[in-house]
Design a protein around this nucleic acid. Structure first.
Length: 371
DNA sequence: CTTCGGCTGACGG
DNA sequence: CTAACGCCGTCAGCCGAAG
């Protein structure tokens, strides 16, 4: 049976939620920010609404750039706990449309709609989703429908905000052909630059490269992903019930420092945050990591695996403090800008008889070679 | 040979 | 005046050690 996949993407989600909380923001440029502890507006833009985007503001942009582009915009600190609550309600709605539902972030989810048996029926369902989300939560979203995740995702981005774009199987080649390679999932600035140096800028041009050549260039996994992606092929299934692989908390120090006492204090409170998260979700962990970043982008991690899975806060605390001590002994000159604590090797408490997502049987995470 | 722990880097939201 | 820049999470690839 042919697959039909939809990607639902809530438009400028953080900003939209803020506009709901405070209707006076309607019509204004709204920029939701992640501020660091440095003060003076240090931080990055999480989400800008469409008014702000018209002025050139983008996610990930330093706040101070955004201020220059949108002098009179409303700048708000991100309130992610609240956005997650709203997100959960939207996801509960979406989940009723397919058992094969996969939330991929706070504002995006894939649904396998193969049961509808036709792209037109899937599109009718998507319209229902949009109106139910609008009616119940007053939120707009953009939906892309295609024969796989790759096409659905790109389609969702074509008509934003409040869009609905369907690309049936036979329309895929002409849909992809004119796109720049950067539109393909997994092609970021580095890969795009590498391809551009070979004058491979469009999907059409990318199609002229052999599988072997691409794999030599960017590695075997990404190579086949590019090769297949250029041809609109993508076997990744919509995976319900995926479990988290790691939990981390990071923070920016007020000032760069190499002081053990000051860093140990920070690491202790981060350990508490990590522990709060995993214990609330009934997760055990077996590996603890310390992450440090210098003022010049250099990121270093040090980790230690425990002999047993545990839930103990002390295990996080003690391990990460020891890792910090060792690291500072190795690199006494290292000026820490940001620091973080991570746990991995997670085991989730099993709800009922549900099997964990990692029980083998289906591990098609990579793209397939074409026959 | 495969697997695992440990680490880095690219990427997405 | 200039340079300036969060907080998560996923996966692949590499290395050396171990099975």
């Amino acid at each position: 049976m042919k697959r039909i996949v939809a990607l639902v993407d809530l438009d400028a989600f953080y900003a939209q939620v803020e506009e709901l909380r405070n209707p006076k923001l309607k019509g204004k440029a709204v920029i939701v920010c992640m501020y660091s502890a440095r003060g003076k507006g240090s931080g990055a833009v999480a989400t800008a609404n469409y008014e702000a985007r018209k002025l050139g503001v983008r996610s990930g942009m330093p706040i101070i750039y955004a201020k220059r582009k949108a002098k009179n915009a409303v700048f708000l600190p991100a309130d992610r706990d609240y956005y997650w609550k709203v997100s959960a309600r939207v996801m509960d709605i979406l989940q009723t449309y397919s058992d094969l539902f996969e939330q991929v972030s706070i504002d995006e989810a894939y649904l396998d709609l193969s049961q509808t048996n036709s792209f037109t029926a899937a599109e009718r369902l998507a319209k229902k989703m949009k109106s139910e989300i609008l009616q119940k939560e007053k939120l707009t979203c953009s939906i892309g429908i295609g024969p796989n995740k790759l096409v659905a995702k790109i389609a969702a981005g074509v008509k934003k905000p409040n869009g609905l774009v369907t690309v049936p199987e036979d329309a895929v080649p002409s849909f992809l052909k004119p796109l720049s390679v950067g539109k393909l999932y997994g092609v970021g600035p580095k890969t795009e630059g590498l391809l551009a140096s070979l004058n491979m800028r469009s999907v059409k041009q990318l199609k002229t490269m052999s599988l072997a050549h691409l794999q030599k260039l960017v590695g075997s996994a990404k190579g086949s992903m590019l090769y297949n992606g250029a041809r609109g092929k993508d076997d990744r299934p919509v995976q319900p019930g995926r479990q988290k692989q790691q939990v981390s908390r990071l923070t920016t120090m007020k000032k760069d420092t190499s002081s053990f006492n000051s860093l140990a204090e920070t690491v202790a409170s981060l350990s508490t945050l990590v522990h709060d998260t995993v214990s609330a979700q009934k997760i055990t962990f077996q590996t603890v990591s310390l992450i440090v970043m210098s003022n010049k982008m250099e990121q270093i991690s040090r980790s230690h695996s425990l002999t047993e899975p545990t839930t103990a806060k002390k295990a996080i605390q003690d391990t990460v403090t020891a890792l910090l001590k060792t690291f500072l002994a190795e690199r006494p000159d290292f000026q820490v800008r940001r620091i973080g604590v991570r746990v991995s090797g997670l085991e989730h408490a099993i709800p009922d008889s549900r099997k964990p997502a990692t029980n083998g049987q289906r591990t098609l995470r990579t793209f397939r070679k074409p026959s």
